[in-house]
Structures are given as C-alpha cells and as structure tokens.
Design a protein around this nucleic acid. Sequence first.
DNA 1: CACAGTCCTGGCACTCAGTGACACCAGAAG
DNA 2: CTTCTGGTGTCACTGAGTGCCAGGACTGTG
Lengths: 245, 245
Amino acid sequence: MTPRTVGLLGSDRGTWGTPVMAADRTKYRIAETAMRLFLEQGYENVTVEAVASASEVSRRTVFRYFGGKDELPFPDHSGRLELLRSALDGAAPGTDPVEAVIAATRVSLRDFLSHPELVLRRYQLTRLVPELRTREVVEHERYVVVTRAYLRANLPDGSPPYLHMAWAQLIDAMHRAALGDWVRSGGATDAEADLEAGFAWIRRLVRTEAGGAGAGGPASLLAVLPDSPEARAALASLRDASHPL
Amino acid sequence: MTPRTVGLLGSDRGTWGTPVMAADRTKYRIAETAMRLFLEQGYENVTVEAVASASEVSRRTVFRYFGGKDELPFPDHSGRLELLRSALDGAAPGTDPVEAVIAATRVSLRDFLSHPELVLRRYQLTRLVPELRTREVVEHERYVVVTRAYLRANLPDGSPPYLHMAWAQLIDAMHRAALGDWVRSGGATDAEADLEAGFAWIRRLVRTEAGGAGAGGPASLLAVLPDSPEARAALASLRDASHPL
DNA sequence: CACAGTCCTGGCACTCAGTGACACCAGAAG
DNA sequence: CTTCTGGTGTCACTGAGTGCCAGGACTGTG
C-alpha cells in the first residue's frame, strides 16, 4: 500500500473528504480518475482499460470494485445505503415511523453534503451523460425501496395500501428537491434548511394519519381554507379546545 | 408485410390486445418471443441472437426496434409515454395542474390495463431478473420526469420549490400502489377504483396549494384537527362563508 | 417500361464491457 | 520454513451493441 505514485493525482489521498473513503482508498482513487477522464474526454470515449491504466490498476481490478463502467462515478452509494439502513434499524422503538424515515433521510442528506466536490462534480457528468443519469436513478431508487419497506412494516395496520408508498415518495420528494436545488446552485443553497422546510410541510400532513387510533381509519379532519383572520381564530379555538398538544 | 410465418406464434397477430401493437407488429412479435424465452430459459441464458432467430428476424433488426436486450420486455413504454405527454398537452387551459396530472395518470393506468397479459407476464420476469427490474425502474422514472416538468411549469408562481416534486411523487405513489397491487394479485384487484381512492385522498391535500392567488406565497390554511361534529360544523361554516366553490 | 428514391432488412466486421480461471505475491500465523 | 489468506495481474472467452454496405420491396415520375 501507500503507493509512491503521486503522478495523476494531486496527492496520494485523493481530493474527497475523509469519512467513507478511508474504508477503501483504491475504490475512490479509481472513481476520481474515472470522473476526471469522463469529463475530459467524454464517457463513451473512455474505455475501462483507460480508467484502469490511469488509475494504475488492472482492468480486472476495476471490475472488482465496481459492478460496471456506469457505476464508476458512484463509489459512495453502497456506503450511504448502509447508513440509511442502520439509521432506520437504530430508530427508537416508540418512534413515529414517518419521523424515523425523516431522520434517516436527514442523515442521508448530511452524508451527501459531506462529499461536496464529489457530488457537484458528478452532477456535471450525470447532466451530460444519459447512461450515468440512468444509473443515478437506479441508485436513488434503492433508497426509496428501503424506506418503503420500513414504512410498510411499521405503519399502523389499518392504513390504506397506498399510504406507505405515499409517505415514502413524499419524503423522498423533499430529499430530491433539497439536494437537487443545492446541486443545481453549485452548492450555494442551504440544503439542510430546505430539507427541514420540506419536512415541516410534510408534518402538517402526517399528523392526520399518525395521530388517530389504528382501527377504523383516521379519526382526523384535514381542512383547507382560504387564509383569513377569522379562519385562523376559528381553527385556533378548535385546536385548543380539543387537542392540547 | 402480413408474414405467412405462423410458426412459433399461435397466430400471426400475437397474443396481446390491439391498440398499440397495430402500430408495429414486428416489435411486439419480437417482444413476445423474447419474454417467452426469458421465462423458459432464464434471462442470462438467452442471447439476443436466440431471440432474433426465434423471431425470424436478424440480430441487427432486434436492435433496430429495441435499444438493448433489457428493453425487450417493454415494447409498450414508448407509446405510453407519448400518451402521457399528449394527455398533458391536451389539458384544458384553466385546469388545475394537479388535476391534469391526475387525469393523465388515469389514462396511463388504463393503457397499462389494456395489455393485461403483457403486464402480468412481465411481472413474473421483472420479479425474477434484477436487470429487468432495473430497466423497469428507469422506464417508470421517465413518466415521473414528464409530470414533474409539467407541474413545475404550471404550478402557481409563489409555490415553494419542493411542491412540484411533492405532487408528482405523490400522484406517482398512487399509480405505483394501484398498479402494484393489481399486478401482485395477478389482475384480481380493481386497479382503477384503487387509483381513484388514492386520488380522493390526494385531493384532500391538494386544495391547499391550488386555490390561492399567485403572488406572495400560498394564501391558504391547512389545518389538521381531531374529528368531531363541532369541528365539522365550524369548518363547514368557514368554507361556505368565504369560498363558495 | 425504365429509373430513381425511400424504407426495411440481412450480413458482415469490429469494439468493448463483463466474467471465469489461474497464477502470483505480500504479510500473518503456525 | 511452511501454510494460509486476501488482494492483485494475466489471459481467454462470450456476448452486447454499432457502423457500414448491399439487396429487395414498394412508390412515384418520366
């Protein structure tokens, strides 16, 4: 280990952060090289052989670390997926399952933001190369599958069959929106704040389903009305009268 | 045209319905053959060459109709995507954009259900072959991309940045749930009714954002409270007083 | 009838992704 | 020194996907 080959890389420890990449330096080194070549020469014009030799490994080794050429820009996904799983597994028993998924999604976004150069650089690539965009979609779907499964297992029994799907997609929408805006802005927005704003919006909906007792369907009302002082006052009095939460 | 080659197929017009396949018989014939071989021998054990010769076309022709081996079971997606687009384009000008997407999604589901054998047979395959499941995810994402773009363009200007994403994902969740339950049940459930039930649930949320005037953010209140006769009465009077829609 | 144009097809030939099998070499442990 | 183990390189092979060209069917035009 500790290759003396500083050549193509700025240093022997790459450019990207520390947390995940410490686990497997070689994998990230290959990914970094691949993304550089893809950006310089175009995805289709770069063979795996080229990536391998530029990374100073054999072609076979590239395929030992990555399932395919299109996975080269995503060395962090497997780790983050594991992070998401453990965040859900580690949720306190009594926790509202939707809140558990929200917390896990927050963890996932934080992990994204801890590799800003990787994520922003990759965006340049996925925007340009349809095949990589496709791969990104597939990788992303894995997260949603995990949250869907968690919600299906933990939502109260009387829930309608679309509910786990709805919350999973809704929470994912906030994740997508916050991360997407951040990435499109080149890292300028406050993604965590945006995510929390989305969660706040979600929470105003989730109380409907989560509050009531299980059997017989939701015992809540969801009301939408034009804003006005009268409406606010009426709602406030109703809320205070019956539900002093 | 009108090939006299009845050989491997039960008839010269395949097995599946009429609407889309009339457009290109050959494409559906190849798809049918491919799915049969995939189910009989396993996806990885069937080469494109085998599909081609069993379909009585050349290997080259298979790739003229399909972008790749993994697209063989999805001959209907391009047509349905076009259907979705035209449904959105054809929406009446004043229509609530969320309602427009709901209507388009209804059309999409109907189109799915018009090919029951194809869809149910394909489910056996996608459940079994990860690569095909992946392709299904990607194809599905295309629909959501279209609806997202439509909502982003047509939602009122003051809407928060996550809103188009949220509604798109939410409506898609209903589509996924209804179609998924139908497919998993082997075609036994009433998918259209399930979809409408989901839409009804969505409508209780959507009124919030769609009603208000544009500038300065949503001019609506969203309230969630415990159900009670008093609450219902109070809300009814508020609604009648200010918003006689 | 002759001829040009178009569309769909088959037939190569080629690149390259991905995989299996085996050999090699480091270091750790006995 | 021997043995085991984990990471690596080398080689050979299958098969997906593409570019190019040629041929046949059909159409319209002179």
